[in-house]
Design a protein around this nucleic acid. Structure first.
Length: 215
DNA sequence: AGTTGGATGGTCT
DNA sequence: GACCATCCAACTG
């Protein structure tokens, strides 16, 4: 859940995660030991590890395990529960911001309209259906790195489950870590809710109509 | 429906 | 200088 200065809330249910086990996990950012970037991973459980990828996306992890174990869970997708419009606005801000970095695009109204149209057409299940999209929809910024996600006053925080865990949890290999080699690239450390359309990945793209499994 | 390449910049070798 | 815990537009069938 994200609470901004005006008090507006953006709430989502986490529907997809990945586990990163620690320094021995060749897919983990902790694989080369402690660095300035991954320092939060080596800290207190329940705190945030926020990092940037590909120059333009921020991803959110929840630190797990004992302090120093450097294990964490990447939040890969969420289903918006409250504040859907604020998430759309944040998505537009993010996309416009990354475009602004490209030269000669300052206040290009056509570009803004194009982005707003695309984001406006997204189904609610597509607003945070990927790690970079979670970061954009919830305005996860590098200054949130290391904050206590279990504090009731944190601007970004975890809340108690919104009821019973619905349906079945499926485990698959993690995404985008083929470089890590075996066994890390094959371990079933990605978890998602079966049938949840907000889940990212080839099997359940939120933008395409994946046919419901009959019966 | 599936594949490919571009954007983009910090981090590590 | 290469590599990314990514996403999207623009292709190909």
């Amino acid at each position: 859940m994200r609470v901004d200065e005006s008090g507006a809330r953006r709430v989502g249910r986490i529907v997809e995660t990945e586990a990163y086990l620690g320094p021995e996990d060749k897919a983990s950012h902790a694989r080369s030991g402690r660095t300035p970037r991954n320092a939060a991973m080596f800290g207190e459980p329940g705190h945030a590890y926020v990092y940037r990828v590909y120059g333009m996306y921020t991803c959110l992890n929840v630190v797990c395990g004992r302090p120093g174990s450097a294990s964490a869970v990447l939040i890969r997708a969420a289903l918006p529960i409250e504040g859907e419009d604020a998430m759309r606005a944040a998505r537009i801000r993010h996309d416009l911001g990354s475009r602004r970095a490209t030269r000669h695009a300052d206040a290009d109204p056509a570009a803004r309209a194009r982005i707003a149209t695309r984001v406006g057409r997204l189904p609610v299940t597509g607003l945070a259906s990927g790690p970079g999209l979670v970061g954009a929809a919830f305005s996860v910024s590098p200054d949130l790195d290391g904050i206590d996600l279990c504090s009731a006053e944190a601007p970004l925080r975890l809340e108690a489950p919104l009821g019973d865990v619905p349906g079945t949890i499926v485990a698959t290999p993690r995404i985008g870590i083929a470089y890590a080699g075996e066994p890390w690239s094959s371990l079933p450390l990605r978890f998602y809710l079966a049938g949840e359309r907000a889940v990212s990945g080839p099997g359940t793209p939120s933008t395409s109509r994946s046919r419901a499994v009959s019966d």
